[in-house]
Simulated scan of single mutants.
Amino acid sequence: MAFTATMLSWSVLEYGKRMGGEVGNARAAIRWATDYLLKAATQTPGKLYVGVGDPDADHRCWERPEDMDTPRAVYSVSKTNPGSDVAGETAAALAAASLVFRVTDRAYSRRLLAVAKTVMVFAMKYQGKYSDYLGSVVCPFYCSYSGYQDELLWGASWLFRATNDAFYLNYLKSLGANDNTDFFSWDNKFAGARVLLSRFQQQAEDFMCRILPNNPSSTTQYTPGGLMYKQSSANLQYATSISFLLFTYSKYIASSKHSFTCGNLLFTASSLRSLAKKQVDYILGENPLKMSYMVGFGARFPQKIHHRAASLPSLATYPGHIGCQAGFQYLDSSSPNPNILTGAVVGGPDQNDAFTDDRKDFSHAEPATYINAPLVGSLAYLVGSYGNG
C-alpha cells in the first residue's frame, strides 16, 4: 500500500495538470491510503504497524470481503524488531503525499510531513529487514528481497524533495548506494530514487541503458511482441513502473534538451517516450493477442481474473453467507467472473506473449494496486500529449 501511495502521489505531482477532473479522484485515493498509514505510524509510540491478517489462513479461503472470518492479527516493527524497508517506504509515501496536499490542504500536508520525518528517523536508527523479524507472516508473499538500502535511499529522497533540508541530502550521500539495477518495483526502489533526484543523473542513465533495447548495455529481455519482460510472475508490474520512469526522466531531460549515450548509441527524451508508449499500448491491447490487460477496457480483456470479490457472486445476487471452503467452487469455475473489476491490470502474458485466461493462474491473472499505480501517471502523460480519443 505504501508503494502504491507513493507512486500515485508522484503521478499527481508530475502529471496532475493533465488529469483534468480525475485529479480529485487521484487525491482521494492517495488520502485513503495515507489516512491508514498515519494510523499505522502513530497508533502506538515506538511501533509501525505493517500488516493485518494471517496470510496462510487467508490463502486457504476463497471468500468475499464481507464474509471474511479469518484471523485479523496485526503485525508491527519496532526498535527491537526493525523494518527499515517498510518504514522507509512509509516515510516516502507520507512525504510524497505531503507535496500533493501542500496547496489543497495545508494542515493535512504538515501532518503528513511531520509523521514522515518521524518514521524516517525510525528507519535510519533501527536498521533491519522486516521479513527477517516477521518471517512467515510476510514471506514468501512480500519478503524484502532487495534489502532495505533502497528504501532508505527512497525515503530520504522524498523527504529531501519535500523539505529541501540538507540533512537528507547528506544522508543520501552517506549511503553510497550504487546498485546496478534494471528493476523498479514495490521491492526495489534504487532506480526510482535516481530518477526522482537529478543529482543521480549518471546512475539514472545507467538504468535507462539497461532498459533500452538494442544497445550494448541492455540487460532487459523483450517478448516477440515488444513487451519488456523481467519475471514470470506479475511481469506487468515492471512494465508499468519502468514505463513511468521512462516518461518521467524523458520529461526531466527534455526541459534541458539533454541527451545521453549507451555505448556509442545516442538516446533522447523522444527515445524514452517512444519505448514507454509502446509498453502502455501493449498493455491496452496493441499486442499479438489483441488482448487488453486492463479489465473492462477494450473489446477483449481478461474474464477470469484471480480476485475473490470479482469471482464470487455479489451480496446483491446472493445475500447469504459463503464460507471459507465453499467459495472454492467459484475459483474452480470455468465461467467468467460475475463482477467486472473495471480498470484493474493483471499480471499479464508470458515471455512468448501468451496468456491463458485462467483464474487459478495467479502469476498472470491476478491484479494488484502496485501494477496499477505507476500506470496512472503514464496514462495522464499520454492523455495530455495525445488526447483521449
Results as ranks from 00 to 15, higher is better:
7 M>E: 13
9 S>W: 13
26 A>Q: 12
26 A>D: 05
42 T>E: 12
42 T>Y: 08
46 G>V: 11
48 L>T: 04
61 C>L: 10
66 E>T: 07
68 M>G: 03
72 R>A: 05
75 Y>L: 08
87 A>W: 14
98 S>R: 07
105 D>A: 07
111 R>F: 01
116 A>Y: 05
117 K>M: 13
126 Y>R: 09
129 K>M: 07
132 D>I: 07
135 G>H: 10
135 G>R: 13
138 V>P: 06
141 F>T: 13
142 Y>F: 10
150 D>W: 11
152 L>R: 01
162 A>Y: 08
166 A>F: 12
179 D>L: 04
179 D>H: 12
183 F>L: 11
194 R>N: 14
204 A>S: 12
205 E>M: 04
219 T>G: 09
232 S>W: 08
236 L>M: 10
238 Y>F: 11
244 F>L: 15
246 L>K: 14
248 T>G: 11
260 F>P: 00
261 T>M: 14
267 F>M: 03
276 A>Q: 00
283 I>R: 03
289 L>R: 15
289 L>I: 06
297 F>G: 01
307 H>T: 05
314 S>M: 05
320 G>W: 09
325 Q>H: 14
326 A>I: 09
335 S>I: 02
340 I>W: 07
340 I>C: 06
342 T>K: 08
344 A>P: 02
345 V>R: 06
349 P>L: 04
362 F>L: 05
368 A>K: 00
377 G>T: 09
378 S>G: 09
378 S>C: 12
381 Y>N: 02
